[in-house]
């Protein structure tokens, strides 16, 4: 939970620092288009949809989240099969609760590297000079464990947080804008997706999503979000 909040804070900063970009992506030059093995291990998509109430509190909506999870799943599958990739699923994440197990540790490292990328790759003030303009991030070859266990060449990780404005909040926003010209924050969609070469651990593709619109609650909206998130996904 702390990590999620941290991420939200980081992404908010990204947003504030880099004005108002929607998505931007990085592709490693290590990714060879000719790679014949296109099996992709889909790590459990971390999705959460919440409602902004009039007072500005966010409440997670379980029904929306369940819908979104289903939609994202469907459209990820569709998008990846259009790119001729084969999907493999990770055994239920809740199964492995041993903190020290390799699989748990690799997933934790992936989270840490993802946050590091959001910080140092997307915030100009936080750029690491030794990295130059290259996109060079890796989890190291221990990811082979996942490759062997699941028979997949790549791992895809998707993270989305989406919030919507409730009726009460919408009225407050309207009033604030009309009376004082101040804008209260409405709903936002933020997230990232990363593709890891499980043989080397290299992050071969990384895309960030941040925008003030988008809707995962219905099918067209979800398809659009997945499309945006996988924009520039290597073919």
């Amino acid at each position: 939970m702390r990590r999620m909040k941290m991420l939200i804070v980081v992404v908010l900063i990204v947003h504030m620092v880099s004005a108002c970009v929607t998505t931007s992506f990085y592709k490693s030059d290590k990714l060879t288009a000719q790679e014949s093995d296109r099996t992709v291990l889909l790590l459990p998509a971390d999705v959460e949809l919440s409602e902004l109430t009039a007072g500005g509190l966010t409440e997670i909506n379980a029904e929306w989240t369940a819908q979104a999870q289903r939609h994202i799943d469907t459209f990820l599958k569709k998008a990846l099969s259009e790119r001729k990739a084969q999907l493999v699923r990770l055994a239920s994440a809740s199964g492995d609760t041993n903190r020290l197990s390799k699989q748990v540790q690799i997933l934790k490292l992936h989270g840490a590297v993802g946050r590091t990328i959001l910080t140092h790759q997307y915030i100009p003030e936080m750029k690491l000079p030794t990295k130059g303009d290259k996109f060079e991030w890796t989890l190291g070859p221990e990811t082979r464990l996942l490759r062997e266990k699941y028979g997949a060449r790549y791992g895809l990780f998707v993270y989305v947080r989406d919030s919507y404005t409730s009726a009460g909040r919408a009225v407050a926003m309207f009033l604030a804008a009309a009376l004082f010209g101040v804008s209260l924050q409405g709903g936002t969609q933020l997230g990232f997706a990363s593709l890891v070469d499980l043989d080397t651990g290299d992050i071969v593709w990384f895309n960030r999503l941040f925008r003030g619109h988008g809707d995962l609650r219905d099918e067209p909206g979800a398809e659009d979000t997945v499309k945006t998130l996988l924009e520039n996904f290597p073919t």
Binding site: M1, R2, R3, M4, E48, S50, E59, I60, N61, A62, E63, T65, A66, A93, S94, T97, N98, R99, V104, K108
Partner: peptide
């Protein structure tokens, strides 16, 4: 699933998943 309470549960389910392997 349609209740606000389910949303609250979901949030803590995620928190719990983290707690299981927390340091």
């Amino acid at each position: 699933l349609t209740s606000d309470e389910a949303g609250l549960w979901l949030m803590f389910d995620k928190f719990e998943a983290t707690a299981k392997t927390s340091g």
